[in-house]
Amino acid sequence: MLSRTADHLYWMARYTERAENIARMLDVNYQMSLLPQGGDVMEQSWIATLSISDLMEAYQKKHDTVTPAKALAFMAFDRDNPSSIYSCLAAARENARAVRGTLTSEAWETLNSTWIDMRKAVTRYSLGAEIADFFEWVKYRSHLTRGVIQGTMLRDEAYHFTWLGTYLERADNTARILDVKYHLLLPRGEGAGGVVDYYQWSALLRSVSAFAIYRKVYRDLITPRRVAELLILTDDMPRSMHRCMSQVYMHLKAIANSQSAETERRAGEMHASLLFGRIDSILEMGLHEYLVEFLARVADLGERISQDFLVPSPIR
């Protein structure tokens, strides 16, 4: 297939996934803000959210203070913020439009409808209690988009590039969500088990649809160690880093070309280290350090994928 087509599909999928994960991250912040706690904790939590998304600088250009309402508006609806949900859905749709002939009509219409409704959503949802409905809607549209792709697209290269984008983005986003929360929660001490902690951890798990999964897998108290293990190493947890990297590796193998061997090897190496890794050694190294390194390796993989497949290459 055309390199440019592959590029658009890959980014269409990444932006769709990113919009969903931003909604998840904002949702957990919003849920936590309903708990009894001091204003400084709230502010810390929003600062952490903005920082982990590399958006602090852009935010400060527009706003002097960090308040939940301003931060929410900035990350959900701000057109000037290239990582807002609004901008991500716009970018997903623009990429889809550029390859609408490669997508099935159902897939294209789903992405296009999402965008048409997003434009209306800016005025429809207030930043109050309704905002939770908006996050639900974003997640729902993302589920629908993936479902339509899964249910209608030919299993050809286009399909693999689409899922490659989805899983690489999700690997990145899960690592970020875990980092931002773990960072905030851990100083309270492992297994402290206060009521607030319980809600904080369960909110984090819910933000990646992992609360019920946690119960099923561990049938025990929620502890930070196990939360990290679930989100990093558990293969059958659909949003875990391990799961994402095994999918990235699989789709990469399916599209291999004459110059992609090294990229494939690096993806395989990441997958293997998650497959055989142990949570104790990760925590020993320091979770934050581990996640930062992981994010760098995801970024490296993204660049290599661009070079191997997506950038129009001269004749060799």
Binding site: L2, R4, A6, E157, F161, I255, N257, L310, S313, I315
Partner: peptide, 9 residues
């Protein structure tokens, strides 16, 4: 004339 594809020209 060639097109640039993911598997070369």
């Amino acid at each position: 004339v060639y097109m640039r594809t993911t598997r070369g020209p």
